[in-house]
Design a protein around this nucleic acid. Structure first.
Lengths: 143, 143
DNA sequence: TCTTTTATATGATTAATATCATGTTTTTTC
DNA sequence: GAAAAAACATGATATTAATCATATAAAAGA
């Protein structure tokens, strides 16, 4: 449903929210090992996420990647859209450009309600929300 | 959300259900033009769909592709799974192998209900159901 | 200021999708 | 039967996504 890149990005962003802050940064290499993602690819993804302010970074000794309070307010949908683009989840199931609510394709009208619900949840849930669930052991993160 | 191949396949299968039967077959070339899909690629996809009994075909003069009654009972999910594989829509949002209902990742528990609903609809809707909606003008197919 | 450590920028390679092309087989019709 | 019309099978090419590699720039600490 998502690209590998988006999956990796989500894992990394969640991991950083749980385990880092401005005083506890983490190297790309270490992040990649912890969440089981190829090292060089992880580094490239992290750089892109930092450039778009999804996470934070600092160069040099004592540098690394980390999550600050404003990063934690990013929504899950924003992370996916930064990587996979705006329309990855919302585009017409048949790939029709002129399919919409007023002129729906047969599959659109079928699945639109449940898909919209799913996207709305991704849009209304922040990294902070997720990390709180994790801290309360309501869910697991077997990265 | 789906691959191009799956989108093309769905369009073709729906189109055939609406416009063909054993006495009115259609050439790969003509199908590709009607639903706006590259000719050679469409031909290859149609051959794969015919081999897996999603549609029907006949060689030689007066031959072509068509939809018979049993083809119309195929579900939308079956079409997608034949092309994109079983797990395209159902796999964990974070790509975790050991994420499941009992040990859910934080995103799984968030979106699982709405996503399952969507998949259940695709699984319970047949090509025949869709073509009836189209004939009743409940929906459109602006291929 | 120099060295070390880190992210950054950029590009190269590999793998997977998507697309194109063509010879082979089957079936119809004459 | 022979010729033509179609799908079928197979492989080639192109494009995109995933992965790897490395030189550059910035920051810290000695």
């Amino acid at each position: 449903m998502l690209s590998n890149s988006s999956k990796y990005a989500l894992k990394a962003v969640i991991y950083l929210a749980l385990h880092t802050d401005v005083n506890n940064k983490m190297l790309a290499k270490d992040i990649s090992e912890r969440i089981n993602v190829p090292k060089a690819y992880m580094a490239k993804l992290l750089q892109g996420l930092a450039k778009r302010k999804i996470i934070s970074s600092a160069k040099g000794p004592k540098g690394g990647f980390y999550s600050n309070p404003s990063n934690k307010n990013v929504t899950l949908l924003e992370v996916v859209e930064v990587i996979d683009g705006e329309k990855k989840l919302e585009s017409c199931f048949l790939g029709l450009d002129d399919c919409n609510e007023h002129k729906p394709c047969p599959i659109h009208s079928l699945i639109s309600p449940s898909r919209s619900k799913m996207i709305a949840l991704l849009e209304s849930t922040t990294i902070y929300d997720l990390s709180k669930d994790l801290e309360l052991n309501k869910v697991f993160l077997p990265v």
